[in-house]
């Protein structure tokens, strides 16, 4: 199973399927009988303007699989970079980007996934943070309903560093964000958050694997979302604490609302612990909006749609409040409001 090879060799047998335990709810092999032709290159007018426009001077664009292959932030430097992943048409493409953040440097990465058409796409990112380096990644993904997209991120965190991400998505025909983080501990911290707003027949899968390899590390995860229509939300989170990684404090929460009888939410929050001096916890809830609270709000005069929207915004808002980059949080908040108004 290897999506990159599946696309390069146009071999559907390489696609992950539900027989792979980690893909049981995001079956690609059952969905795609053939791999589409390679996508054709995109002209500048097909690329347009992204949702983070104006928040950073520097902008990288990966369009239909072609774009820059490396980004290096020098030690001690502070940079904000926009990364746009744009897909158009009905082809297949994959790209890989290597990001290195030098010792003590800070990178704010504003990443968007746009368009999609009915393409099959893979974006792989390798992110290395040297000692004391930090990175905050904000992701807005709003793809067409026929797109199939996978984004893989491998993060190598170092001592005293910090990695934080907030992925917000409206899903696609099939979509997966997979984050794999190697956590050396040594006073480093990770925050992996997510928000999904799904309607129609969309699907989104937020998967993360955090491997604590050393002592005294912190991981904090909060994912919230709602599924309406016939959509399907998948949350998979695995926290592994290796032998000797004592003093690890890891918390994971996933809270989902199902707004329709035909929507589905699947979750697998996993703890895999090989050390004894740890404090690990996860909590997962799935439910509907509370009818009693809705009635209470309506008794005070709010129309049902407004009451639902207000509840949804406050429910998802707690994830947005955890974003460090204030201007980014503002942009994300209005992005969210625009989609909740229509979606709830």
């Amino acid at each position: 199973m290897n999506l990159d090879e599946a696309i390069r060799l146009r071999d559907p047998a390489q696609l992950p399927s539900r027989r792979d335990e980690d893909w049981r709810w995001t079956d690609l092999r059952g969905l795609l009988r053939t791999i589409p032709e390679p996508s054709s290159p995109l002209g500048p007018q097909a690329i347009g303007v992204g949702p983070f426009e104006g928040l950073a001077a520097e902008s990288l664009v990966v369009a239909n699989g072609s774009g820059p292959e490396t980004l290096r932030v020098a030690p001690g430097e502070t940079r904000t970079v926009i990364l746009r992943h744009v897909s158009r048409g009905d082809g297949a493409h994959s790209a890989r980007l290597r990001i290195e953040v030098g010792g003590g440097a800070r990178l704010t990465l504003l990443e968007s996934h746009e368009g999609g058409g009915s393409s099959l796409s893979l974006l792989g990112v390798d992110l290395t943070l040297e000692d004391g380096a930090s990175c905050e990644r904000l992701v807005l993904a709003d793809l067409d309903p026929e797109a199939v997209a996978v984004v893989e991120l491998d993060v190598e965190l170092s001592a005293g560093g910090r990695y934080a991400q907030t992925v917000l998505t409206t899903g696609a025909r099939r979509q997966r964000f997979e984050t794999r983080l190697r956590h050396p501990g040594l006073r480093s911290e990770a925050r992996l958050d997510g928000v999904y707003i799904l309607a129609g027949r969309k699907h989104a899968d937020l998967t993360s694997v955090v491997r604590h390899t050393g002592p005294d590390g912190r991981t904090d995860q909060l994912t919230r979302g709602f599924a309406d229509g016939q959509s399907r939300a998948v949350f998979q989170g695995r926290i592994t604490v290796q032998e000797g990684a004592d003093g690890v404090d890891a918390r994971m929460a996933h809270n989902a609302l199902i707004l329709s009888d035909r929507a589905e939410v699947d979750a697998r929050p996993e703890l895999e612990i090989y050390a004894d001096d740890v404090a690990c916890a996860h909590g997962a809830t799935v439910g509907a909006l509370d009818d009693d609270v809705l009635f209470y709000m309506r008794q005070r005069g709010l129309a049902e749609t407004d009451a639902r929207a207000l509840l949804a915004v406050s429910f998802l808002g707690e994830v947005i409040e955890r974003i460090d980059f204030a201007a980014g949080a503002e942009r994300v908040r209005s992005w969210l409001l625009a989609r909740i108004g229509a979606g709830v």
Partner: peptide
């Protein structure tokens, strides 16, 4: 038994309701 509404400050709630009315 008044209901709890997590994440919505009381003033925000009351103002939204008053204006809706």
């Amino acid at each position: 038994y008044p209901l709890e509404i997590p994440g919505v400050p009381a003033l925000t709630f009351i103002r939204s309701a008053l204006n809706a009315q």
